[in-house]
Computed example of a mutant assay.
Amino acid sequence: MIPTVTQQLEAIRRRLAETVVPELPESAEFAHEQVLLIDAALGFLIETHEHEYRYAVVEHHDYRTVLGELARLGGTTDRPVLDALDESGPGETDAVIPLPELTERTRTMKVLVERLYRRLSADGVAGANELMADLAARQVGREASWFRQAGFTLPGSAHIGSVLEMNP
C-alpha cells in the first residue's frame, strides 16, 4: 500500500535525525539550528495535517453561524453577507471521521473489493471485470497525480486537485 503522508513525514524526520544530524560537525552551529527548525516544522505537520480539513469545516460553520445570527439580529440586506450565507459549504459532519481511521477503513474495503472481485471473476459474473478496470484506472489517475512532484509517475499527470474534482 502507498504510505500515508504521516508515514512519509515521519520517515523524513527519522532520516534527518539518524542520518543527517550525526554527519554535521559540532562546529556547524547554524546547520544544527536549521535542523532543529526543520524537525519542529515536521513535528507540527505530523501532528496537524490529518486534522486540517476538519479544522476548516469547524471554523467555516462557526463563522457561518455567527454571520447568520448577526444578520438576523440586524435584519441586514447587505448583499455580500446574504451572498455568503447563500453559498453552499461543507456539511457539519464533513471530516468527522479522523483521517487515520478513514484510511484504515478504506484499506479494509480494498481487501474486501479484491476478495469479492476474485470470487465473482472466477464465477464468470458479467460486469465484474469492467468495474475493476474502471476502478483501477481511477486509482492510477489519483496516484499519478498524488506523486507527480516526486518524479515517480506518468509524465503529464494532472494536479491532484483537478483529479479529485473529476473523481470525487
Rank of each mutant, 00 (worst) to 15 (best):
3 P>C: 13
3 P>I: 13
7 Q>C: 13
8 Q>M: 15
9 L>A: 02
9 L>K: 05
11 A>H: 10
11 A>V: 05
12 I>S: 06
13 R>D: 01
18 E>F: 00
24 L>Q: 01
25 P>V: 06
25 P>K: 11
26 E>G: 15
28 A>S: 08
28 A>K: 15
30 F>D: 11
37 L>A: 11
38 I>Q: 07
40 A>W: 07
40 A>C: 02
41 A>E: 03
46 I>H: 14
47 E>M: 09
49 H>F: 07
52 E>L: 13
54 R>S: 10
57 V>S: 03
62 D>P: 05
63 Y>C: 15
65 T>I: 10
69 E>N: 13
70 L>S: 03
71 A>H: 01
75 G>L: 12
77 T>G: 11
77 T>C: 04
78 D>Q: 10
80 P>S: 06
81 V>H: 12
83 D>Y: 02
85 L>N: 13
91 G>D: 14
92 E>Y: 10
93 T>Y: 06
94 D>P: 03
95 A>D: 11
100 P>Y: 05
101 E>D: 08
101 E>I: 04
105 R>N: 07
106 T>L: 14
106 T>Y: 14
111 V>M: 11
113 V>G: 03
115 R>S: 11
119 R>A: 13
121 S>Q: 04
129 N>A: 12
129 N>R: 14
130 E>A: 15
132 M>I: 06
132 M>T: 05
134 D>L: 12
134 D>F: 12
139 Q>R: 05
141 G>W: 01
141 G>Y: 03
151 G>C: 08
151 G>F: 07
151 G>H: 06
156 G>E: 04
159 H>P: 11
162 S>F: 15
162 S>T: 15
163 V>M: 02
166 M>D: 09
